[in-house]
Lab assay of single mutants.
Amino acid sequence: NQASVVANQLIPISTALTLVMMRSEVVTPVGIPAEDIPRLVSMTVNRAVPLGTTLMPDMVKGYA
C-alpha cells in the first residue's frame, strides 16, 4: 500500500504548501504519492483543502 499526501490542517485556496501542512498516510483513494512531498513545497492549491483530505493531482497548480 502506497502512502499518499494528506492535509495536516485546513489549507486555504491559493495557499503555498509547506512541509507542516502535509503528512503521509495510506488512504483510499490513493492521491499524490508521499514521496512527492518535497516537490509540492511552494506549489499552491487551487481550492480549499480541509484537514484530513487526500491531496489529488488536480488540487495543486502545476503538479499534474
Score class of each variant (00 low, 15 high):
62 G>P: 05
34 A>T: 13
62 G>Y: 08
1 N>F: 14
63 Y>D: 03
16 A>H: 14
62 G>D: 14
46 N>F: 06
37 I>K: 05
47 R>C: 07
8 N>G: 07
54 T>Y: 03
58 D>L: 10
47 R>I: 13
15 T>W: 08
31 G>E: 02
40 L>W: 02
38 P>W: 09
29 P>D: 05
40 L>Q: 00
1 N>S: 15
48 A>T: 15
43 M>F: 15
43 M>T: 04
63 Y>Q: 04
14 S>E: 13
19 L>H: 10
53 T>D: 14
31 G>R: 02
5 V>L: 03
10 L>Y: 15
43 M>H: 09
63 Y>P: 04
56 M>A: 06
41 V>T: 05
46 N>A: 06
45 V>W: 00
14 S>G: 15
9 Q>V: 13
2 Q>E: 15
56 M>W: 05
11 I>P: 01
35 E>V: 14
47 R>G: 06
21 M>S: 05
13 I>M: 13
4 S>G: 04
18 T>A: 08
1 N>K: 06
6 V>M: 04
55 L>M: 13
23 R>G: 11
30 V>S: 12
16 A>K: 14
40 L>N: 00
37 I>C: 05
63 Y>A: 04
48 A>L: 14
39 R>D: 05
7 A>G: 03
44 T>Q: 11
22 M>Y: 02
33 P>M: 08
26 V>Y: 09
61 K>I: 14
1 N>G: 10
25 E>S: 09
56 M>F: 14
6 V>T: 06
19 L>C: 07
64 A>E: 11
13 I>R: 11
5 V>D: 03
33 P>W: 10
18 T>S: 10
53 T>M: 10
4 S>T: 04
35 E>N: 09
31 G>T: 00
32 I>T: 01
21 M>L: 05
28 T>N: 15
62 G>N: 11
3 A>Y: 08
39 R>N: 08
59 M>A: 11
21 M>G: 02
61 K>T: 14
49 V>A: 05
45 V>F: 00
4 S>H: 01
63 Y>G: 04
24 S>W: 08
57 P>R: 08
63 Y>H: 05
20 V>K: 13
37 I>M: 13
4 S>W: 02
16 A>W: 06
39 R>F: 12
42 S>C: 15
35 E>P: 07
32 I>L: 06
46 N>H: 12
42 S>Q: 09
4 S>L: 02
53 T>K: 08
45 V>I: 07
46 N>R: 08
54 T>A: 07
10 L>I: 12
3 A>E: 13
5 V>G: 01
18 T>E: 14
21 M>W: 03
12 P>D: 10
37 I>R: 07
34 A>E: 08
46 N>G: 07
5 V>E: 01
61 K>M: 10
42 S>Y: 11
9 Q>D: 08
35 E>C: 09
3 A>I: 07
21 M>A: 05
12 P>N: 11
53 T>N: 12
13 I>C: 15
39 R>S: 12
55 L>I: 14
34 A>L: 03
40 L>S: 00
34 A>W: 06
38 P>R: 08
27 V>C: 06
58 D>F: 08
22 M>I: 09
9 Q>N: 06
45 V>S: 05
26 V>Q: 12
64 A>P: 14
60 V>T: 01
58 D>S: 11
43 M>G: 02
34 A>I: 07
48 A>H: 15
49 V>K: 00
23 R>V: 07
51 L>C: 11
50 P>C: 08
13 I>S: 12
